[in-house]
Deep mutational scan, measured.
Amino acid sequence: MAEQVALSRTQVCGILREELFQGDAFHQSDTHIFIIMGASGDLAKKKIYPTIWWLFRDGLLPENTFIVGYARSRLTVADIRKQSEPFFKATPEEKLKLEDFFARNSYVAGQYDDAASYQRLNSHMNALHLGSQANRLFYLALPPTVYEAVTKNIHESCMSQIGWNRIIVEKPFGRDLQSSDRLSNHISSLFREDQIYRIDHYLGKEMVQNLMVLRFANRIFGPIWNRDNIACVILTFKEPFGTEGRGGYFDEFGIIRDVMQNHLLQMLCLVAMEKPASTNSDDVRDEKVKVLKCISEVQANNVVLGQYVGNPDGEGEATKGYLDDPTVPRGSTTATFAAVVLYVENERWDGVPFILRCGKALNERKAEVRLQFHDVAGDIFHQQCKRNELVIRVQPNEAVYTKMMTKKPGMFFNPEESELDLTYGNRYKNVKLPDAYERLILDVFCGSQMHFVRSDELREAWRIFTPLLHQIELEKPKPIPYIYGSRGPTEADELMKRVGFQYEGTYKWVNP
């Protein structure tokens, strides 16, 4: 592979701008107003304001973009700056750019259920340069409990009458099928589907988006991507930290609602779906819905739930269990780990287990898709061969690698495990991989909904998990304890083995 010439960040961002501006969906010269509902909250200060700053800094926003914060707290732009700027990672050389960014910011205080507050917000936006005809993007960085009041008031008082209007809704989209349907029906009564952007930030990850290209742009994968060759698929999300004093919020939802029903299920769809007619948003989402419709409700015998306990040999936070978090209700049975087996009941995947695993306070930070292939028929190497695996590593250190057998150097035919490896950090030294939120917010500006969740996708996802969630809430089974920093409950490994996964433990990928 030829040595790549190092590029400056300015040059890299210039390439990104060229890609972005050559499309006809990006209205570079139009006025846009980006409204952050819930501007005083954690999500706004840690993710949304920093993301908008990065896009502005790199010249990736339309030229005439204004940012308006809205929340109940009586704040000023200076207050917003004070709480969000520490997350910007701005350099001293960017000081003038930073001043320009905050000059485009404003803030309006108001209630979430008060019509007069929204009329005041609308008047404020109209007073901005060309504000009355601007395109408006409303980001709901809010708890779902206020979605209905907020969307109703936005629709009645704050819509642009000339430009387009788009609304970005953060997960969780309800707690179960019934609450999700209620919320979807409410929002759909106010906005068209092409105006609604239900954001799952995992769909903005580079390697998640790469799944489609790997599958449908490489001839070698087509013939082997089926039940005849693939023994099982494992989708993993692991965090090495616990709730760390923020367990009160987590306890309301648990690990299945927080990660599995959305992030992991979306990745499953991209692995299992048929080739779409095109890369058009609805063509892709149509195929994802077909996959979900082929999955039956989760069966309790295919589920393992766990909850982390303190590690007596650990240090600091590792010595504390979930129930030691003062914000967690006493005696909570909320799971911090889950392993679930699903089956896609169609011709391509009949009988292939899709194993979804996620948890907190585990032994490493990792998100990946792992396809394990069947054993080689007619073994001539005296059971020395391990199964081939194709691994798409989402985070950290984005990579695609194939675990395969090669001859060990020497005189004899002794096979050993090795890999074919594409590590993004080595291959793409001159490429700026956008943060997931950067990519998705740019998608909203461009009107691309491919990486957002459609209402029928959402409904099918909740259909699969709601009976299990209701059973857990009714019966309150005690989750299996696992030690902070471990791989999780051993019962999860036993479940995976029972459905056909072979864990060798003899080879570990190392970032080159």
Score class of each variant (00 low, 15 high):
Leu7Tyr: 13
Leu7Asn: 14
Arg9Phe: 10
Gln11Ala: 15
Val12Cys: 12
Val12Leu: 14
Val12Trp: 15
Ile15Ser: 08
Ile15Gly: 08
Leu16Asn: 12
Arg17Asp: 11
Glu19Ala: 15
Phe21Lys: 15
Phe21Trp: 14
Gln22Val: 13
Gln22Ser: 15
Asp24Met: 09
Asp24His: 11
His27Ser: 13
His27Cys: 06
Ser29Phe: 14
Asp30Asn: 14
Phe34Arg: 02
Ile35Glu: 03
Ile35Met: 08
Ile36Asp: 03
Ile36Arg: 03
Met37Ile: 15
Gly38Val: 03
Ser40Leu: 04
Gly41Cys: 02
Ala44Pro: 01
Ala44Val: 05
Lys46His: 05
Lys47Glu: 01
Lys47Thr: 02
Lys47Ile: 03
Lys47His: 09
Tyr49Ile: 09
Tyr49Ser: 00
Tyr49Glu: 03
Pro50Val: 04
Pro50Cys: 06
Ile52Asp: 01
Trp53His: 04
Trp54Phe: 06
Leu55Glu: 03
Leu55Val: 02
Leu60Phe: 12
Leu60Glu: 07
Leu61Trp: 06
Asn64Ala: 07
Thr65Ala: 10
Val68Asn: 02
Val68Thr: 06
Gly69Ser: 06
Ala71Cys: 05
Ala71Gln: 03
Ser73Gly: 07
Ser73Tyr: 03
Leu75Glu: 07
Thr76Ser: 12
Ala78Trp: 12
Asp79Ser: 13
Lys82Val: 13
Gln83Met: 12
Gln83Phe: 12
Ser84Thr: 13
Phe87Gln: 08
Ala90Lys: 08
Thr91Pro: 10
Glu94Asp: 12
Glu94Ala: 05
Leu96Trp: 13
Lys97Gln: 15
Lys97Met: 14
Glu99Pro: 05
Asp100Thr: 13
Phe101Val: 00
Ala103Glu: 15
Arg104Ser: 06
Asn105Thr: 12
Ser106Phe: 14
Ser106Lys: 09
Ala109Ser: 13
Ala109Asn: 13
Gly110His: 01
Gly110Glu: 05
Gln111Glu: 13
Tyr112Met: 02
Asp114Thr: 14
Asp114Gln: 12
Ala115Asp: 14
Ala115Cys: 15
Ser117Trp: 09
Gln119His: 12
Leu121Ile: 10
Leu121Pro: 02
Ser123Trp: 15
Ala127Met: 12
Ala127Phe: 12
Leu130Asp: 10
Leu130Trp: 14
Leu130Pro: 13
Gln133Met: 14
Ala134His: 11
Asn135Gly: 08
Leu137Glu: 01
Leu140Gln: 04
Leu140Arg: 01
Leu140Gly: 01
Leu142Thr: 06
Pro143Gly: 03
Pro144Met: 02
Thr145Glu: 00
Val146Ser: 05
Val146Asn: 05
Tyr147Glu: 03
Glu148Ile: 11
Glu148Asn: 09
Thr151Ser: 13
Thr151Leu: 10
Thr151Gly: 08
Lys152Arg: 15
Lys152Val: 11
Lys152Ala: 10
Asn153Thr: 08
Ile154Val: 14
His155Thr: 09
His155Gly: 11
Glu156Asn: 13
Glu156Gly: 15
Cys158Ser: 07
Met159Phe: 15
Ile162Val: 15
Gly163Tyr: 05
Gly163Pro: 05
Asn165His: 11
Ile167Thr: 07
Ile168Glu: 02
Pro172Ser: 00
Leu177Cys: 09
Gln178His: 15
Ser179Lys: 03
Ser180Glu: 05
Ser180Ile: 02
Ser180Trp: 01
Ser180Met: 01
Asp181Lys: 07
Arg182Cys: 06
Leu183Glu: 01
Leu183His: 02
Leu183Gln: 01
Ser189Trp: 07
Phe191Leu: 10
Asp194Phe: 07
Gln195Trp: 07
Tyr197Ile: 02
Arg198Cys: 02
Ile199Met: 08
Asp200Phe: 02
Gly204Lys: 02
Glu206Ser: 06
Glu206Tyr: 09
Met207Val: 06
Asn210Trp: 04
Leu211Cys: 07
Leu211Gln: 07
Val213Asp: 02
Val213Lys: 05
Val213Met: 12
Leu214Asp: 07
Leu214Glu: 01
Phe216Ser: 04
Arg219Gln: 08
Ile220Pro: 03
Phe221Trp: 15
Gly222Phe: 10
Pro223Gly: 08
Ile224Tyr: 05
Trp225Asn: 00
Trp225Pro: 02
Asn226Phe: 06
Asn226Arg: 07
Arg227Ala: 09
Asp228Met: 11
Val233Thr: 00
Ile234Ser: 14
Ile234Glu: 15
Leu235Pro: 02
Leu235Glu: 02
Gly242Val: 03
Thr243Val: 12
Thr243Glu: 03
Glu244Gly: 09
Arg246Trp: 02
Arg246Asn: 03
Gly247Cys: 08
Tyr249Pro: 03
Phe250Trp: 05
Phe250Met: 00
Glu252Ser: 11
Phe253Gln: 01
Phe253Ser: 11
Gly254Tyr: 01
Gly254Met: 00
Gly254Pro: 03
Ile256Asn: 05
